[in-house]
Amino acid sequence: MTDQTSAAPAGTADTAKPVAMSTSSRGTKALGLLTLVSAVFTILYSFWFSKADVELGNTVRILYVHVPTVSIAYLCMLVNAGASAFYLWKRTAFPDLLAAATGEIGVLLLGLTILAGMMWGKPTWGTFWEWGDPRLTSTLLLFLMYLGYVTVRNIPAPRSARNTRSAVIGIISALLIYPVKMSTEWWGSLHQGRTISAPGASKIHGAQEFALYSGFLTFMLFAAWLTIHRFRVGWLQDQADATELDAVIADRRAEAGAEQFGLGEVH
């Protein structure tokens, strides 16, 4: 996370202001530090202060990753849908880049959620995967839809067409989040229902509850930090493409000018 800087060209108004040579800034460094501190607390509470559960034993420690990752994945996907809708309305770069960043991070976190769920399912249910279970299969479908979103973003196409296609896929994919969330209540499922926001009272207490909330905070801070960096990478990519395109156009113009000049000499 080193941040190399170089001075702006002499003679410009911004001579004294250093220009970032990476996607880091003072803000992201502070946020990154906060994320690290929060991660240390989460690890301490997950492995030291939180004891093995009476029923679940040490597998409860898998839930400190599984529950926060899925919640923050949903959050990323909802931001993605909002940014996608805003892009279709305004057609500006900012919402498109935000959608690209949150879509990619969302699918990554959801993939880890599925993996953590499988690791929890094997010792608890006796199986890594149950195809007949609505929560598991609908989550996999959501994951595949966002994988499709990321794929469409990376297929070479005119920028406007790519952005529009991916925005539409992002909005459609987000429509699946609510059915996935409610699947344990709408249909019978091996997967347990709500733990924290259960009607009545929370089913988790003490150090276990704190470890879970600490996990939420850590993954939220991490996702925010990562979104900023991923956003800047997308922005830099667009700038690099535009700069290179400008250079190619300038070369072609120079070549065309030289040819015209050459023909003029013949005549």
């Binding site: 996370m1 190399q4 170089s6 702006a8 060209p9 410009t12 220009v19 970032a20 040579m21 990476s22 996607t23 880091s24 800034s25 990554l108 880890l112 991490f222 990562l226 960096h229 991923r230 800047r232 990478v233 922005w235 830099l236 990519q237 700038q239 690099a240 700069t243 290179e244």
Partner: peptide, 26 residues
């Protein structure tokens, strides 16, 4: 997550070198 972070930071650094300084501000 660590691998993804490294990938993003490296891509950011590599792209920064390809973009003129005046277009590198956030």
């Amino acid at each position: 997550l660590g691998g993804y972070v490294l990938l993003i930071l490296r891509r950011g650094k590599a792209l920064s070198k390809r973009v003129p300084e005046d277009k590198r501000r956030w």
